[in-house]
Write a protein that binds this DNA or RNA. Structure first.
Length: 486
RNA sequence: GGCCCCAUAGUCUAGCGGUCUAGGACGUCGCCCUCUCACGGCGAAAACAAGGGUUCAAGUCCCUUUGGGGUCACCA
């Protein structure tokens, strides 16, 4: 019965390198790793980079660094290799194509020549008449196969879609939630191969999981509604399904799915804000899992020893920074003085970081004793704006407008790859222009937000050294403060 | 809106039919310790979403409602 009883346990995480390393990735990675370790299994890291338009050059490395920083490591992956490689989906294009061809040959899939415009029209029409089902209308499903193959051979742009069954139910056996049934009428003919030849998540995920002999899929709850599509794919291929486990989603304070707009979400933020990696990891474990007794502080090894699925709770846990801070305090207090010193030296007091700060302050100090008071904001997380609250403003702009402006800058910086003084200045100037704010005023505002002082080293150099996460957090915090005032 | 998931205090959770006048933790408040602050110690307020069943017995099982969330892409 168990799809894995006879096979060695293999699990995976499959992050997509589209941005900053996400706490949710670490969260899911933790549960995968713990389960693998407990079962004497293997934990695989696979990079899902099939969307060229969203891929970011530095993102993949940041994922590795961030996961290692929290203390998670994998047995197989693009950077460490392994017998089931390549572990980067962009390097497996041929494999997906072959599998799509296989499905095509079996009549389990078909070519679709519909244009993006037509698809958009269909969707708009469905929405307009408030159709209960939104999805592809199977326009190309009836096409003659030989004819479709000919058009394809002639180079006509098209995608490959799964020919989902027209009737019946798809059953997902979730090990955390039990049997979940989906009516097949809710599932449309999912695209498997995009017109650029890259697979969609659905195809790549199923093909890779099978080829990499993944026995247990442990992923976030947001995937549960696409699981029937995956089940259908396993059936179409005639493969054995993995055991499904859908973990609850981390939440913002308002209970929505955790997002960078409402909560620091990058692992790098937690690092830069002075959280200890083991504390973060321990905290993530607490989000959805409990030790069994009242223990809240425990190591990875202890968790591995005590882990079981029935101690996972399914309500979406709110990521509570206060409780994380409390846990972090426990970890800090458990360090010896020497260890704490090392922790600091590995953090913002590292030689590496101080060397970045120095060009900004050397000209501004006359004696060494001035360094610490002058540079405090380089070593802080959140700032206290009470002393400058009155000056946190732009002439003739209401506080709410200033808040909005700050958030607009956050969005702007988000959209731009790279974080150095040059990029920041470009974006900063464009931002001020767009808002119609004099740079003098706009930049003083930013200076106050970022340093809580009226005098500082050059603004954009300061932001560059501060780093993306801390800067972003301060912009948001200040915006929130101003919005409250309004 | 269709489908799906979820439901114990503001938050994270224990509870797997009787031992629950519901336990722990964060946060909040009070007291103690104390040269200050912090730590620490002690204590307080604070929850089984609602309504129906099943049962001798329901926070625990079932149904409905309500609420929250997710998802409906050539993104993952």
């Amino acid at each position: 019965m168990s799809p894995s009883a006879d096979r060695p346990v293999r699990v995976r995480i499959a992050p997509s390198p589209t941005g900053d390393p996400h706490v949710g990735t670490a969260y899911i990675a933790l549960f995968n790793l713990v389960f693998a370790r407990q079962q004497g299994g293997t934990f695989v890291l696979r990079i899902e980079d099939t969307d060229q338009s969203r891929a970011r050059a530095d993102s993949e490395q940041m994922i590795y660094d961030a996961l290692r920083w929290v203390g998670l490591s994998w047995d197989e992956g693009p950077d460490v290799g392994g017998p089931f490689g390549p572990y980067r989906q962009s390097e497996r294009k041929d494999i997906y194509r072959q599998h799509a061809d296989l499905l095509l040959a079996r009549g389990e899939a078909y070519r679709c020549f519909c244009t993006a415009d037509r698809l958009a029209q269909v969707r708009a029409e469905q929405q307009a008449r408030k159709a209960s089902f939104l999805g592809y209308d199977r326009h190309c499903r009836g096409l003659d196969r030989a004819e479709a193959d000919r058009r394809s051979a002639e180079g006509e742009v098209h995608v490959v879609r799964l020919a989902a069954p027209l009737d019946g139910k798809v059953v997902v056996e979730d090990r955390l939630r039990g049997t979940v049934e989906f009516d097949v009428h809710q599932i449309d003919d999912q695209v498997l191969l995009k017109s650029d030849g890259m697979p969609t998540y659905h195809l790549a995920n199923v093909v890779d999981d099978h080829l990499m002999e993944i026995t247990h899929v442990i992923r976030a709850e947001e995937w549960i509604s696409s699981t029937p599509k995956h089940v259908l794919l396993y059936k179409a291929f005639g493969w054995q399904e993995p055991a499904w486990h859908h973990m609850p989603l981390l939440r913002n304070v308002d209970k929505s799915k955790i997002s960078k707009r409402k909560n620091p979400v990058s692992i790098n933020y937690y690092r830069d804000a002075g959280f200890l990696p083991h504390a973060l990891l321990n905290f993530l474990a607490l989000m959805g899992w409990s030790f069994g007794d009242d223990r809240e502080k425990f190591t990875l090894d202890e968790m591995v020893g005590a882990f079981s699925w029935d101690k996972v709770s399914l309500g979406g846990p709110v990521f509570d920074l206060d409780k994380l801070t409390w846990l972090n305090e426990k970890y800090v207090h458990d360090l010896s003085y020497e260890q704490l010193v090392d922790a600091l030296l590995g953090w913002r007091l590292s030689r590496q970081h101080l060397i970045k700060v120095m060009p900004l302050v050397r000209e501004r100090i006359k004696r060494l004793d001035e360094f610490v008071p002058l540079t405090e904001y380089f070593f802080s997380g959140d700032l206290d704006y009470t002393a400058v609250a009155g000056e946190l403003s732009v002439p003739d702009v209401a506080p709410a407008g200033v808040a909005q402006g700050l958030l607009a800058l956050v969005e702007k910086l988000e959209a731009r790859e790279g974080w150095d003084a040059k990029v920041l200045e470009e974006e900063g100037r464009a931002w001020a222009t767009e808002l119609g704010w004099k740079t003098k005023h706009a930049f003083m505002l930013l200076r106050l937000v970022v340093t809580a002082r009226k005098a500082s080293p050059p603004l954009f150099d300061t932001m560059a050294v501060l780093g993306k996460e801390v800067t972003r957090r301060r912009l948001r915090q200040a915006a929130e403060l101003l919005a409250r005032k309004a």
